[in-house]
Amino acid sequence: MNGKHITMAPTSPFSEEAIHLMAELSKTLKDITGSGGRNSFDPNDVCKDRAMFVIARDESGMPVGCGAFRPMDERTAEVKRMYAKVKGVGAGNQILSYLECQAREMGYQVFRLETRKVNETAISFYLRNGYQIIPNYGHYENRTESVCFEKKISI
């Protein structure tokens, strides 16, 4: 699979492919962190205005990853359910870049997200993509296992 042949399409998080990808992500997260992350994601949150769920596909049309964002306030959106099936081919970078672009077009200025401190691969991924560690926000505030990130996405 070559990263430059990946396409994105907004999709319902309730579609069969979306449910399958998110189940794979939850299993992967459970193996890494001990939690599948399902409790911090409501699919309905990415079906609202100024929100989005996308599936990435390779050149043969097979799903290779997903990602989403939901509004936090007028200027800030939260990244959710970021997943690339195969690591190291650029799918994650392309999904995140696509989400940032779509959010910017919707008027957002900032992206935020949370991951677990033990998920070193995710932490290095977000740092490489220009995200900075910030104080934990929302229901992550007093969770010592969490690390939160932020990136200004407006130009």
Rank of each mutant, 00 (worst) to 15 (best):
N142D: 14
T11K: 04
M22Q: 15
R50Q: 14
F14P: 07
A51K: 05
R128Y: 09
K152I: 11
V79Q: 06
A103L: 09
V110R: 15
M8A: 00
I153F: 07
D49R: 14
S124V: 12
L21A: 02
E74P: 01
T144L: 12
P43Q: 02
I95N: 03
V46S: 04
L25G: 01
I155F: 10
L127F: 04
E105Q: 15
V86T: 11
K85C: 12
A18I: 13
E141F: 13
D73P: 04
R70I: 05
E114N: 02
P71D: 08
T33D: 13
A103K: 06
G37W: 02
K87H: 08
P43Y: 01
M52H: 06
L29N: 08
A103T: 06
E24R: 14
A122I: 09
E100M: 15
Y137S: 02
M62T: 12
G65K: 06
Y140T: 03
G3R: 08
M106H: 11
R81W: 03
A68E: 00
S146W: 00
G130W: 03
Y98V: 04
E59P: 04
K152N: 12
D45L: 09
C148E: 00
E24V: 08
L21E: 02
V64W: 09
G90Q: 04
R128T: 15
N2S: 15
Q109T: 07
P63L: 05
R128F: 10
Y140I: 02
Y137E: 02
I155Q: 08
S124Q: 12
G36Y: 03
D45Q: 10
I155C: 10
P43M: 00
A122C: 07
A23I: 06
P63N: 05
K27F: 05
I95R: 02
D31W: 01
E141L: 14
M72E: 14
R57L: 03
S124G: 04
I55D: 04
Q109H: 11
I123W: 04
V147M: 03
V64N: 02
S97G: 10
L25R: 02
S154R: 13
K152A: 11
L96A: 06
F125S: 12
T121H: 12
N136W: 00
N39C: 09
G37E: 05
A56L: 05
S146M: 00
E24A: 13
D49A: 15
N93T: 15
S26Q: 04
T28E: 09
S40D: 15
M82G: 13
R75Q: 13
Q132P: 01
K151F: 01
V79R: 04
M82Y: 11
T76I: 03
T28P: 00
